[in-house]
Each structure stands twice: as structure tokens, then as C-alpha cells.
Design a protein around this nucleic acid. Structure first.
Length: 416
RNA sequence: CGGGGUGUGGCGCAGUCUGGUAGCGCGGGCGGUUUGGGACCGUCAGGUCGAAGGUUCGAAUCCUUUCACCCCGACCA
């Protein structure tokens, strides 16, 4: 992508109505646009990051047998009444409206009910099970107060997977696979070392759920953590009983501030019974399907990544989710430089390397500052100097000094 | 939802206390000098001061109502 053709631009000043680092940087760099409190649009560069994260999630969901689909944002009231979650006193984040004919509807803050109800059409025999489905959906939640930029919005993208199993044993086996799949996602986006599977409250259905908590000062949760045992406990469930259950003592645990990037639940048979999702087993008996739910906040994850890696110059994206791998800065505007940079841009993109090509007629300092702010992993410079030396100047975002490489080595380093 | 703060060109702000018809920086247009870490000179465009109502000869400024945004807390499958 040529920066001269991109309509977004960077800003020197961050908006003062945002204090969250992720929102300030993403807005300064032109990745997102704030429509209103807790509601953000994703501009081309931010959209690219979001799509890159989604692709990683998609691959991991697919690897454990997940089939992607997309449910509706508009939902039926009757469904939620069956599970007693329509009442605002029970669920306080509902957006609701009414059709012209007077029918009450809700806007999806979660999809457990509709997706489980829908599955009644397809799951009737043990031969139909297990089934694993997932989607990337914009969830709408009428939060009393949204905060922390894209980490807690009223409108946000979530990957939610649901598992339908014949038995508790089968469910448990998949639950463990899904846990590993999510851990792999966090590993791949660079948060593996600071993201922990965490014991949390299980709500109405089970004693515990599991959260994935990433250590960051920008987080809203507090967890007690053993790095050695790779185990964490949300403060809301910390008790002697829980410590005994997990066979760990309080003084092995350190207190850390975290952001919840994922949350997985076992529903058992409860929701299937409420929504009448039964199947006929091998032995001819009718049984409720065992349900699990696995959520990962995609937009929140993007915000957490900004928070965790940014430095005083701007954002720092891991290679595999950056809006581009290379920021190609053309220094000087003489024809020889322009044509050399054009040619390099074509060659790299031809090899499948994603390049943000700064072909604007602005001073070098501005290009370097923008490359840093946007957090592009590699900065590649073409100038009179590099042309006369027959080499290219490559600098990693996280390193201070550049290296001079010939074209062959350049392409090797960039992995094509 | 309780407490606190803020709304003035696209962005960041001053002016409000003490009413006299809006100013600065960034950004944008044009002309020129520049070109390896956000350059500089000249020039031009752009705002009925969040909205509504009131007081006054006159309101960004005073009064009333209202909307929005931010922070702290509460809440948070």
C-alpha cells in the first residue's frame, strides 16, 4: 500500500478525551476512529491488524475442528425468556428494540441461546455429535461506562466458539483441546509469556470457569499467579478452599493486574435442557447435549497487544499481525531514488511481503516518526546513499541501529 | 448509577472570574527556500464558541434546562 494513496493520516497530538494508551496511539496513527464512547470504527490499517488476528484465531479454531459461521445480531425475546436472561434485572447490558409490528427484539450481547436453539435443527442423533462451531461477531453491550479505549467497548468483535458433545467425558476432552487452542492463539500474537489460564467464577452452571488473563497495568482484573506452575486464580474466587483444591499455597502466588482476553465455560446439560436440545444416544435413550462456550475478545486483544508492546515512540506490532511487515521509506525525491524505491516495492510485494510504501514528499524525520508510531516491524530505507552503495538499509522497530544489506540478504531476512 | 471534570475551525489550546461581537499552535491550499529524526519564510481559507431558552442596548463570557465526552467508584458470562 502506498501511503500517498491512503486517506488516513497520523497526528502529532492525541485526543484529550482518551486517556487509554491503546486508544491514544491507535487514533494518532490513524488505525481507528472514535464514533462515540466505547464505539470505534476500524480504519484500513487497524482493520488489517484486526483481520490478521482473526486469521490466527480462525486457523486455531479450525485445527480443533471448529466450523465458522455467522449468527444474527437481532435476536428473539422468547429464546432468552426460556433461560430467564431477558429481564434487564438479570442481564443489565441489553440493547433492545421493537419491530414495526410490535415484536420485541434484542441485539446480541452473546449468542449462546440463539446458536443452541438453532442447533436443534441439526443435532438429533449421537451420529451428529460432536459439533463445534465458531464465529466472529460484533457484540453489542449497553455498558454503563465504557473505558480503556478498545479494551472495553459497547460494540466489539468477539470470537465465540461453542461445543456440543454427547457426554461430560467427551466434553471435557474437547474443553482441554480448546484451552490449548486458545493458548496457542495468545502464543502466536506474542502474549504467550504473560498470558495465563486462570481459575474464575463459574456463574450459575459450574463451580469454575477459566479465563485467559494477560498481565498489563491497563487491565481491570487482579489475579494471583504462580509463574512457575503456570497457574493463576482470579481474586474473585480466591479462598482457602480453592487453594486446597488446586494444591497450592498463598505465598507461592504473586498479585498482578491483568486484562481478561478470553473466557471459557462448561454449561453441562443445563442450557440444553432449558432450550430443549436433546439427542438420541446409541442405546436409544434421549439425552441433553453437553454444551461448552469459548469466548475470545478480538478487539480487546488488539488493545492489549498495543498496551503490552508500545514504547515512547509508538506501537510495536508482532510481525504476524502488523498491518504490514515493512515500512519502505523513500528519502529524497530525485528520480533515481523514486524509481529504485518503486522497483523494490514491486519486487517485495511480488514475493508476498506486505509493504507500507511511504512515497510521500515529506521530510525524512516525519517518515521515521510515522514508521515508529505505526509500529511496523521493519523499516527499509532507499536513498541516494543506499543507491550509491548498492545496498539497502534495514532497521527493526525494536532495535536502535540499522543494518546495510544487499538485495539477496534483504529478501532472506524478510523471509521470502 | 454516585462523585468530580471538560465542551471554542479537522486536532491541541487561550479567552469565561471582571459581558463590547473570537485568538494562538498543529493540520490544509497557494508561492518559494529546504531534504537522514516531525524544517522555514510569505500568503490564503476555515469557527454564529455542544444545543435550547432567558437576562441585557450588546452574551463564548451571566442565569436555567439539556446533550455529549473524560476520570474515580460501583457494575462486568
Amino acid at each position: 500500500m502506498r501511503l500517498s494513496k491512503l486517506f488516513t493520516k497520523t497526528r502529532k497530538d492525541a485526543p484529550t478525551d482518551e486517556t487509554a494508551k491503546n486508544a491514544q496511539l491507535l487514533i494518532k496513527a490513524g488505525f481507528i476512529h472514535k464514533e462515540m464512547a466505547g464505539v470505534y470504527a476500524y480504519l484500513p490499517l487497524g482493520f488489517k491488524v484486526l483481520e490478521n488476528i482473526k486469521q490466527i484465531v480462525r486457523e486455531e479454531m479450525s485445527a480443533v475442528g471448529g466450523h465458522e459461521l455467522i449468527m444474527t445480531a437481532i435476536q428473539r425475546k422468547e429464546l432468552w425468556e426460556k433461560t430467564d436472561r431477558w429481564d434487564d434485572a438479570k442481564v443489565d447490558v441489553w440493547f433492545k428494540s421493537t419491530l414495526k409490528n410490535g415484536t420485541d427484539i434484542g441485539f446480541g450481547w452473546s449468542h449462546e441461546e440463539p446458536i443452541t436453539d438453532m442447533m436443534r435443527n441439526y443435532l438429533s442423533s449421537y451420529r451428529d455429535l460432536p459439533a463445534y462451531v465458531h464465529q466472529f461477531q460484533t457484540k453489542l453491550r449497553n455498558e454503563l461506562r465504557s473505558k480503556s479505549g478498545i479494551m472495553r467497548g459497547r460494540e466489539f468483535v468477539m470470537n465465540d466458539m461453542y461445543s456440543y458433545s454427547v457426554s461430560e467425558e467427551a466434553h471435557k476432552a474437547f474443553y482441554d483441546k480448546a484451552t490449548v487452542a486458545y493458548l496457542r492463539v495468545f502464543e502466536r500474537v506474542g502474549l504467550g509469556d504473560i498470558t495465563f489460564l486462570t481459575f474464575a467464577s463459574g456463574g450459575a452452571f459450574t463451580q469454575f470457569s477459566h479465563e485467559f488473563q494477560t498481565i498489563t497495568a491497563a487491565g481491570e482484573d487482579t489475579v494471583y499467579l504462580s509463574r512457575k506452575k503456570k497457574l493463576a486464580i482470579n481474586e474473585e474466587v480466591l479462598s482457602d478452599e480453592v487453594l486446597a483444591h488446586l494444591d497450592i499455597s498463598r505465598d507461592e502466588l504473586e498479585e498482578v493486574k491483568t486484562a481478561e482476553v478470553g473466557n471459557i465455560f462448561s454449561f453441562g446439560a443445563t442450557k440444553s435442557e432449558q432450550l430443549d436440545l436433546y439427542f438420541v444416544d446409541e442405546d436409544g435413550t434421549r439425552k441433553p447435549v453437553i454444551l461448552g462456550s469459548y469466548g475470545l475478545g478480538v478487539t480487546r486483544l488488539m488493545g492489549v497487544i498495543v498496551e503490552c508492546f508500545a514504547d515512547d515512540k509508538g506501537m510495536v506490532w508482532p510481525d504476524n499481525i502488523a498491518p504490514a511487515l515493512v515500512y519502505l521509506a523513500r528519502i529524497g525525491d530525485i528520480p533515481a531514488v523514486a524509481s529504485a524505491a518503486d522497483e523494490l516495492y514491486d519486487q517485495l510485494t511480488g514475493k508476498g511481503i506486505s509493504v507500507l510504501y511511504d512515497d510521500r514528499d515529506v521530510r525524512p524525520g516525519e517518515k521515521f516518526a510515522d514508521a515508529d508510531l505505526m509500529g511496523i516491524p521493519y523499516r527499509l530505507v532507499v536513498s541516494e546513499k543506499t543507491i550509491s552503495s548498492g545496498q539497502y538499509e534495514l532497521k527493526k522497530r525494536i532495535e536502535d541501529s540499522p543494518k546495510l544489506l544487499d538485495k539477496e540478504n534483504l529478501i532472506k531476512v524478510l523471509g521470502a
